[in-house]
């Protein structure tokens, strides 16, 4: 997979520091699963966290803390709980492990809902401070024109889309801010599947999609 569009340093650092809403965490974890360049950059931000920890002044532990921890260990506390994210993806799977974890399976397990124009979506359950959904855009179809308050991340999983500025293929991530009003169109030939997160409801600029917005929970 040749990836041209990557995560920003600010997003990688916020993910490393643990400061992103859950919906964004999922998109970042999905991109990093596909992109070794961003995986290495993320690891370097984790190393900053390690340096911050190393430089923390000691807060003294209670006198029996070590004995209590050995007891926890014997009780199995802190033992790894098997999650899907810990396992490697089967070669035929489209979704990386963290996304598969939220969907409850691969692409065939997604519960799609139509949102008009042949576009389908599935909202994934996360904390309410941001939202994330899968989008299925038919080849050649447009995603309704929208601006957005705050930040929007769009990870391409399959196919490709173009907007006025650039082309985004499988593996690429688009990082858009409120200044960007764009009209993404799926490339002809193959349907496009994306994972998109926003920290505010999208505001569509067309009349009909705007009326439909509360209903579809976009």
């Amino acid at each position: 997979m040749s990836i041209k569009h990557h995560l920003t340093d600010a997003l990688l650092m916020a993910y490393s520091a643990g400061e992103l809403p859950e919906a964004f965490n999922l998109v970042v974890a999905t991109h990093v699963s596909l992109c070794d360049e961003c995986r290495a950059r993320l690891a370097s931000f984790d190393a900053v966290g390690g340096a911050v920890l190393e430089e923390c002044e000691d807060a003294s532990m209670t006198p029996d803390a070590l004995a209590a921890t050995m007891e926890r260990i014997r009780m199995g506390s802190g033992a790894p709980i098997h999650t899907d994210a810990a396992t490697r993806r089967h070669l035929s799977a489209l979704f990386p492990a963290p996304l598969r974890d939220y969907v409850g399976g691969d692409i065939d397990a997604v519960k799609w809902r139509p949102v008009g124009g042949g576009v389908r979506q599935a909202i994934l359950p996360t904390s309410k401070d941001a939202s994330v959904r899968l989008l299925h855009i038919p080849a050649g179809a447009a995603v309704p024109d929208h601006g957005h308050r705050g930040l929007e991340l769009t990870q391409v999983l399959k196919g490709a889309f173009r907007d006025e500025h650039d082309r985004f293929g499988a593996g690429d991530i688009e990082v858009a801010t409120e200044a960007d009003v764009h009209t993404p169109v799926a490339e002809p030939g193959e349907d496009c599947i994306c994972l998109a997160a926003t920290d505010a409801p999208l505001k569509f600029t067309g009349l009909l999609p705007r009326l439909a917005q509360p209903f579809f929970r976009i």
Binding site: E22, V32, S33, R39, G49, G50, A85
Partner: peptide, 28 residues
């Protein structure tokens, strides 16, 4: 480094304990 590894475990524990959220992690 060990400090970095311990940091990532502590950070995840913090998200779990203080924010009561899951943290999606990259594929291992």
């Amino acid at each position: 480094s060990v400090a970095t590894w311990v940091f990532t475990i502590a950070r995840n524990r913090r998200i779990d304990a203080l924010r009561k959220q899951r943290r999606p992690e990259p594929e291992d």
